[in-house]
């Protein structure tokens, strides 16, 4: 048992252990709504990268192309040379990290206060905190918060709101 714990590479999973930055923030707050809002903001920076980011060049298995022979050969070579866990872990380490991970690593908080940095350049909270609320469905100004889903339905859309929101959940 002791030996195992002393060798970190041995038991390492090949999955990249990413604690998504939004999760860090979300875990810090206990409020479900804040969590949802943070997730949403995070989503604004997404690209539609498709479904395989790391294995982008490895999806030969799915090919039904005319290069069938090459395909068979490739498959064989893959079959004979299975990747070890260690190799996989190394590969995962090479995979691109997100900017927020790099930012955490840079440890900018440790800089003396007079040094300008990425964190200090952020503009900071607005002076007036009043937020205008727009209805999620129609986009017009909304006057109150829906109790169930924390969106801001316009009066006109109130009827439709329940239905649509349940629909949205189904999509998600």
């Amino acid at each position: 048992m002791d030996e195992e714990s002393s060798n970190p590479l041995r038991r390492m999973s090949s999955r990249t252990r990413k604690v998504a930055p939004k999760m860090v923030a979300a875990l810090a707050s206990s409020d479900n709504r804040t969590q949802a809002a943070l997730t949403r903001l995070e989503a604004l920076e997404n690209d539609n990268t498709g479904y395989d980011i790391v294995d982008a060049n490895d999806d030969d298995e799915a090919s039904l192309d005319d290069e069938d022979q090459v395909y068979v050969q490739k498959k064989q070579s893959k079959g004979t040379k299975r990747k070890t866990r260690q190799a996989k872990a190394l590969e995962a380490r090479k995979a691109p990290r997100t900017f927020l991970e790099l930012l955490n690593e840079a440890n900018l908080e440790s800089l003396p206060p007079h040094v300008p940095s990425y964190l200090k350049a952020a503009v900071g909270p607005p002076s007036s905190t009043c937020r205008r609320h727009f209805c999620t469905i129609c986009g017009f100004s909304a006057n109150y918060t829906c109790v169930r889903c924390a969106t801001f339905p316009d009066k006109k859309e109130k009827k439709g709101e329940k239905g649509r929101n349940s629909q949205r959940k189904r999509w998600a």
Partner: peptide, 18 residues
Amino acid sequence: HPADLGMNQAGLAECIVR
């Protein structure tokens, strides 16, 4: 008005002033 998105940041005009 990034605040409308739920972002805790000031808008462009205020950004310039700061």
